[in-house]
């Protein structure tokens, strides 16, 4: 049990706020949709592989949207693909998060001016939680993006809004 070993007395009970418990569980197992689009997908793969090891943050690629918590939009979104991404997003169960990786997904990147078939920013189709700049972003940048997303999840609340 590592750090927690022999730290508890007989009660075997932990008391925590519901928000804290749920947020902790959610942020430490952000399962991403195993889905690459373009150049950034290679950097995303490099992030999951030996050197950078995405797994240590609980990010595991799942191949179906039904089991995924987050999509990393890794690359240029074309008009043809945007409709399919929207469909994938709709198939995911709540809560769901989007990381927009790279300039192309953020705003069209180098293709913003003459790209007749490029969607200028994935946020025109689905809502985005974290934008990671770069063309392509280094794996460290993607990790930073993930940490930002975790911070965002940490501050969420399940409480009913009273106004």
């Amino acid at each position: 049990m590592g750090l927690l070993d022999k730290e508890f007395s007989d009660g075997n009970i932990v008391i925590a706020k519901v928000d804290d418990l749920f947020n902790w569980a959610r942020l430490s197992s952000v399962w991403q949709l195993g889905f690459g689009l373009a150049c950034c997908a290679i950097e995303m793969m490099a992030t999951s592989m030996s050197h950078y090891d995405f797994d240590r943050f609980g990010v595991i690629p799942r191949n179906t949207p039904r089991q995924a918590d987050a999509i990393i939009i890794s690359g240029t979104v074309t008009l043809k693909m945007a409709l399919r991404i929207k469909r994938l997003y709709e198939q995911m169960p709540d809560p769901k998060y989007i990381i927009s990786m790279g300039s192309c997904a953020n705003c069209g990147g180098p293709y913003w001016e003459h790209g007749y078939h490029v969607l200028k920013g994935i946020d025109r189709v689905i809502p985005v939680d974290v934008y990671v700049p770069g063309c392509p972003p280094r794996p460290e940048a993607l990790l930073e993006g993930l940490l930002k997303l975790q911070e965002k999840i940490r501050n969420e609340s399940l409480r009913k809004k009273s106004a």
Binding site: L79, E113, Y116, K120, V125
Partner: peptide, 20 residues
């Protein structure tokens, strides 16, 4: 046909804005 020299971007395709 986008590679013709007099091509002009459409405003929308399936509800998505095409120009920046």
């Amino acid at each position: 046909h986008p590679l013709r020299k007099d091509y002009k971007n459409p405003e929308f395709y399936q509800g998505m804005k095409v120009p920046y």
